[in-house]
Design a protein around this nucleic acid. Structure first.
Length: 285
DNA sequence: GGGTTAACCTGCGGGC
DNA sequence: TGCCCGCAGGTTAACC
């Protein structure tokens, strides 16, 4: 599923393949893809035509392409893909939008099987960090790979919460970019049980956890992210190669590489957590 | 205001 | 064979 490393890989792919190309034509092939766009389909298309992608930015799992006063915001949801394809390629079943460029080279398509992803054109505003960002991005926290991310601030905010650590890690208003896969991996690496109360997390543990998060996200970006069930592909259609490095996610019944205990899969927040109950001791309360 | 839950959505696999 | 159900999970509205 697209989390920070996958979105960053897409950002790099778009930067490589779609920059400085004038948009000639846009097709919205499914209304849900622009459900968060403040206007209608006609308005969405007409704003884009004639514009160019001059840069592609990212915060957490959000991508955006800034124009003069507004930005095209892209969120991949659970199964969204941005792919560069030949102009002659047919419109597949899950294709939701298609961008054609004036240079007549390849098209950019947005494919999304589960339709949780989407695009919108929104105003650019100055956020609390003094950066010009789309309105849709102002309510999420900095991601851990952002140079401005502050461990002390994060640690304090974490301990001020009254919740469990995995819930906090998945809360994009506290730290952005982390989803179920990398939350499980980071908690395993830091030897923290996902249900540990945030107020019981020591400053040392918070530091260890953030180091784990940063390390895992960085390693995953190096190999193009995680393709787990075909729901995510790079812009050129290739798979990400981080899946063989996963220690707990999707490893139920396998031996923990640290202690050889069997990896468990337990119900958590209407989804599942993957962990080693020997390395990650259950909290007392 | 903060925390939690359910709904949105589609394809696939398993059980009957 | 065909139907039904559970599962995957990011975001957000609704609820407590």
């Amino acid at each position: 599923m697209p989390e920070l490393p996958e979105v960053e890989t897409v950002r790099r792919g778009l930067t490589e393949r779609a920059l400085n190309r004038e948009i000639a034509h846009v097709q919205v092939l499914h209304p849900r893809v622009i459900r968060n766009h403040p206007g209608n389909s006609k308005d969405f298309v007409s704003y884009l035509i004639g514009n160019k992608f001059t840069t592609v930015k990212r915060r957490g799992k959000f991508l955006w392409i800034p124009f003069e006063d507004k930005a095209l915001v892209i969120h991949l949801g659970m199964s969204g893909q941005c792919l560069m394809v030949d102009q002659a390629s047919p419109s597949g079943k899950h294709q939701r939008a298609r961008f054609r460029f004036k240079d007549g080279a390849d098209d950019l398509i947005f494919v999304d099987q589960r339709t949780f992803g989407g695009m919108q054109i929104v105003d650019l505003v100055t956020d609390i960090h003094g950066e010009l960002v789309p309105l849709a991005v102002t309510n999420i926290a900095l991601d851990p790979l952002d140079k401005r991310f502050d461990l002390t601030v994060f640690s304090k905010a974490l301990r001020a919460r009254d919740t469990e650590i995995k819930r906090a890690l998945l809360n994009q208003k506290l730290i952005s970019g982390i989803g179920n896969i990398y939350a499980d991996e980071a908690l395993w690496m830091a030897k923290i049980h996902p249900q540990t109360h945030t107020q019981d997390i020591t400053a040392t543990q918070a530091r260890k956890l953030l180091l784990a998060v940063t390390d895992i996200l960085t390693q995953a970006i190096k190999v193009g992210g995680t393709t787990f069930d075909g729901m995510y592909l790079k812009v050129n259609g290739e798979s990400g190669k981080y899946a063989p490095s996963l220690e707990v996610y999707g490893q139920k019944g396998q031996k923990c590489s640290r202690c050889t205990n069997l990896i468990q899969k337990v119900r958590f927040m209407n989804r599942y957590s993957h962990l080693c109950l020997n390395c990650q001791k259950a909290p007392r309360r």
